[in-house]
Simulated assay, not measured.
Amino acid sequence: MSSTLPPTATILVSCPDRRGLVATLSGFIHANNGNIIHADHHTDRVQGVFLTRLEWSMDGFELERKAIEYEFSKLASELEASWQLHFSDSIPRLAIWVSKQEHCLLDLLWRHQSGELRATIPLIISNHRKLEPIAKQFEIDFHYIPIDKTNRGDRERQQLELLHKYDIDLVVLAKYMQILSPAFLAKFSRVINIHHSFLPAFPGAHPYRRAYQRGVKIVGATAHYVTEELDGGPIIDQEVIRVSHRDSEIDLIRKGKDVERIVLSKAVWLHLQNRVLEYNNRTVVFD
């Protein structure tokens, strides 16, 4: 039924807080005969930042799409605003990167197959061949690109060429056990990672082992945007599950994988729905 509905436009805005911002931004839509169907706002009073997500129907809206960008850019300049404009009938293209673990990859592909993730997934990249049969099963192109310290520059150039060739909008690291270099991120920055820890606890490698040794009572997972700072990018979603003294390290890993699947898929869904707004290495999630 949703496919018969007219497309919508969504605008995400962050700017210095001032009086009348909600009226000003919604007034722009109203003045062009737009009908707002979703609106959400947040003010960070400590940092003095206003953030909003406005979604409206394009049915009867008086501005063409390119004209929306032009006209709103003038208003954004007056507000000193950072902003993004998205349309519901523009389908993002995802590349999933993996190493040897399949649980997050399969979860994303199943959710995509069921229609839960509104995107196209034309490409899987891996530094191992182990998961190639899954790509074949789902009829997705698979590219094996082994990478180490000696060839990282050449391999990342190869990866970037593939992202350009497949016109990729978002890379999802579904247990891809390699660090992306600052040079790579300078050329392609829209990347989501799943970390098997409730960050900032136990960043880096072997978090379950360290959690087990510490005797924690919860384990979790964190999905975040990737930045140059290792495991330090803006957090999109997190979740935890309780563990006890009876759980072994293997039990922690098993329970943790369940959480990883849920957290990564939700973060990707939120991103695809244009519900995440970044500012100052933080996020506001309009869920």
Results as ranks from 00 to 15, higher is better:
residue 130 K to Q: 14
residue 107 D to Q: 06
residue 147 I to T: 14
residue 139 E to P: 01
residue 115 G to V: 05
residue 129 R to D: 12
residue 182 P to R: 10
residue 155 R to W: 13
residue 131 L to P: 05
residue 38 H to D: 12
residue 143 H to E: 14
residue 87 F to G: 00
residue 145 I to K: 03
residue 47 Q to G: 06
residue 136 K to V: 11
residue 24 T to S: 07
residue 267 A to Q: 10
residue 180 L to G: 04
residue 41 H to D: 10
residue 44 D to L: 08
residue 144 Y to L: 09
residue 190 R to I: 01
residue 50 F to E: 00
residue 129 R to P: 07
residue 130 K to S: 12
residue 7 P to G: 04
residue 124 I to F: 14
residue 233 G to Y: 00
residue 150 T to R: 10
residue 235 I to W: 08
residue 96 I to S: 02
residue 101 Q to T: 11
residue 258 D to V: 09
residue 67 A to C: 06
residue 28 F to S: 02
residue 198 F to T: 06
residue 176 Y to F: 15
residue 237 D to T: 13
residue 237 D to Q: 13
residue 244 S to W: 10
residue 76 A to Y: 10
residue 12 L to I: 05
residue 146 P to L: 08
residue 231 D to L: 09
residue 187 K to L: 13
residue 140 I to A: 04
residue 72 F to Y: 15
residue 278 E to N: 03
residue 145 I to C: 04
residue 180 L to F: 15
residue 257 K to S: 07
residue 110 W to D: 04
residue 276 V to Y: 00
residue 233 G to S: 04
residue 212 Y to A: 02
residue 92 P to R: 09
residue 100 K to V: 08
residue 205 A to C: 03
residue 108 L to E: 02
residue 203 P to A: 03
residue 202 F to Q: 08
residue 99 S to F: 15
residue 198 F to V: 01
residue 230 L to C: 05
residue 53 R to F: 05
residue 224 H to I: 04
residue 91 I to V: 15
residue 137 Q to T: 15
residue 164 H to T: 14
residue 197 S to K: 04
residue 29 I to L: 01
residue 174 A to M: 08
residue 191 V to M: 00
